[in-house]
Every structure is written in structure tokens, then in C-alpha cells.
Design a protein around this nucleic acid. Sequence first.
DNA 1: AAGTGGTCTAGACCACGTC
DNA 2: ACGTGGTCTAGACCACTTG
Lengths: 235, 235
Amino acid sequence: MDEKKPIFGTYRAVKAEILRRIRVRDWSPGILLPPETELAEDFGCARATVNRAMRELADEGIVDRRRRAGTRVSEALTRRARFDIPLPKTEIKALGGQYRYMLIDRREEYPSPVLCSKLELAGDCRVIHIRALHFCDDKPFQYEDRWINLDVVPYAAKQSFENIGPSEWLLTEVPFLEAKVTFSASAADNTIASYLDLECGAPIFITERMTWSEKGVITFVQMSYPPGYKLTTHL
Amino acid sequence: MDEKKPIFGTYRAVKAEILRRIRVRDWSPGILLPPETELAEDFGCARATVNRAMRELADEGIVDRRRRAGTRVSEALTRRARFDIPLPKTEIKALGGQYRYMLIDRREEYPSPVLCSKLELAGDCRVIHIRALHFCDDKPFQYEDRWINLDVVPYAAKQSFENIGPSEWLLTEVPFLEAKVTFSASAADNTIASYLDLECGAPIFITERMTWSEKGVITFVQMSYPPGYKLTTHL
DNA sequence: AAGTGGTCTAGACCACGTC
DNA sequence: ACGTGGTCTAGACCACTTG
């Protein structure tokens, strides 16, 4: 009497099977799944294989895992997507355009109180404030308003940023550990409108980014794009 | 003569060390890295450990890996971020608001040619066109304009969408394999302005989403948010 | 043809957090 | 305290692709 049991020998197969069971409500949201050891036996594979499948599902937000507490189907019916944090130069080249960078303004400042709270800074530190424009085929593509924390990146004081954009410079000089990115829409104020060659009040796409290293906040930047700009995820 | 060699026994340590070497330009962009076997020996750990570290780095876009060709430091100095594809109900509850859903309009249509090309549809299929509003504490929070492909989701024809939002219904009924999300900013037209209670021309944040299953495009949706809305990544 | 990453296994030990 | 996931190991075979 040979038990005929389907075998899921690869982590992809295991993952697909788990997803299937979730889909058909074999396992519904909130339900506690069997432990890895048990699933491995069910599926006829090693625990490591189940683990890999589960780890990816957890990574995608489909299940929640906690030691001792086990694995549950995620309650929040949500999915995750990813996108590349874009570098203007790369972005423009990908569009097939000619990239040009222009520094508007660079000054060393003591941060304003509001900036201090935003950057989580002590009041007595210094920052570099940079404003710049990025062109695509000589049309303004992005207006950049940036502060760099000199406590964390002191050698930024020696960089003029006249020939290289701060994004690019920072990326090669100060690799970051963590970043938070925010997207929003806003109306162009006078300054931005004039730099981006728009009417005042035109809808602009804004991305804000804050990056940290072990030592603290590296930089905060607000980037404004004229209408027509689209940001797309992959996957 | 005991060789004193640092040992990197965990995949996190290995990953950190590789990142460090990339940072200090031991390995610069485009460079071919040693094979896993060699690194494993260097690091004093199993190949699987190096593999795990490398896999994550590849996943984060820091290195590119190809069989036989080996692993290279990525040329594109870019990083990846992730965000949750939000469900209005979840989003509003997370903000601590009271969620309310309102169907504006639901009709079965033959898709227009422009929609056909957008949805990659044949001309003779049918779609459901839905427009709806999502409220947060009785303030309009999101205007939804959606098309559902009846070839892929025929049973959507039986759903009135009067009491449940299409995002929610689709998420539980038709799990998707893939999604493409686009963000942009635009000026509110008359329709959107009136539904979102804005002045015509106000800047709105738009996210568009297209989702696929094995059988083809499930749905295309355009969501409009009034000024003030922000979308934030985690990690 | 050969070298690289991709994956699986069986076993082991450990860390964590719930019970 | 103890069961769960987290991770490492050593070895093996395979798939892909490039030289």
C-alpha cells in the first residue's frame, strides 16, 4: 500500500501550495499555520525548504511569523510593492534624455527650529543647505531642496556641489542604512514655479526623503517634479 | 603559528562585511566579486551563509548575480524601498478615522479603444466600470475610478458593489500575482473636484494600479487623493 | 566544457517570547 | 519551561550561460 501523496520538493512549489491554501480559504486570515516541521513532513521536503518559502511569504506581508507564537495568515489584506529610489541622472538617462545639473545655491547654516525637529537634530549643529536643478534635454526636470547634516558628513563642507549633484555625491560617499520616502502632490509656489518654468499653483509631484547612517540623519531632501512626471514600481 | 583571521559566522556579519568592502572601494561598481566558495573560505563560514547574504544584497539591488558570469557590484547606484499597497479601509483606520464607502456609479460597458489598449484587452470583451468614494470621518478621502475585466473575473457581474468597495472585494476574491503601480500629481478636473470637495485645478495625488492574474489583466484603477495626502514607505 | 550561482537535505544548536 | 522560528553546516546535485 503505497501512500500516494503529492510532493512539493522546491521552495517555489511549497510557496505556491501555501498561497493556494490561503486563497481557497483552507487557511483564512488570522489562522495559525502548522509548524514548519509538520509542514515539511506534509510536503515531503526538508524544513529548510518550508522555511525559505515561509520567509518569503512573510517578507511579502502575506503571513506573520513570530518565534514560539508560530505563523499566521496576515489579517491585513495588503500586498507590498517595491521601487528604486531614483537618482536624477539615472532616471533621465533611462528616459533617453540629456542630463544637466545646475547648482542654484549652497550655504552653510544653523538649522531653523522647524528643520531641527524634522531632522531630529540638536540645535547647535551646522547643516549645508543646497538648492539645485536637474534638466532633461534642457527642460527643468527636478527641483531639489536639500539639507546635509555636517555632524554626520563633515567632509561635505569641502564639497562645492557645483559640478556634481548632492544625491550622486552622497550616494558614493556616505552609504545609508535606512531611508524613509514620502510622496505627495502640492501646488507650486512662486519659487518652485519659476525654477520649473510653470505657472504658480501648478500641480507638482513631491518626493521627500530622509536617510540615516549609524551616526544619525545624513540628509533630508525635497524633490519637486513638474506635471507629467510618473513614478512606477516594478514587481 | 596560528593564523588569526576574523570570522564572519552569520549571514548578517557576512553581508555587513561585503557592504563595508563595497563602501571602502575594495570592491567598486562593476567589479567581479570572488565566487561564493572562495568567499566562504575567506569568511570562515559555509557557502550557504555567503549565499544568503549575497541573495539579500542582490534583492536590494546592490549586486547583480548571474550564473556562470558571477556576482558584480551594481553599476546603478540606487537603492530599493518598499511600501504597502494600501486598502482605503485599512489606511483610514490606521489614521484613526471612521471609514465610509459610497458607490457613485456602476455600469457594464464595452471598453473604449483607449481603455482596451491600456488594459491590453481584446475589443469584444466586457468590463465593469465603477466609480466610488471613500470617506474618512465624513470627509472625502479618495475618489476611485475602476474597470474590472469580466473575462478574468466573470462573477464580478453579480456583485453590486453597493456595500463593499471593489478593492476589498477583489482582494479577497481574486488574489493577484503581479501589480504595477504608478504615482503622479495632477490638477483636479470638474468631476474629481466636486467629489473631493475641492476647487477645480487643485493639486491631487494620483495612484494608478493595474493587476494581473494568470489569466490576464484583472483590473485597472485610478485613485485620486485631495491635497495633504502623503504616502510613506517603510524600510 | 566548465565554472558559477541556485537549491535541497539532514542534522544541529540557539534565541526568543509565549504559555 | 518549552515549542517555535532563525540560522549554520557540510555535502550534494542541478541549471544556466558564457568562453
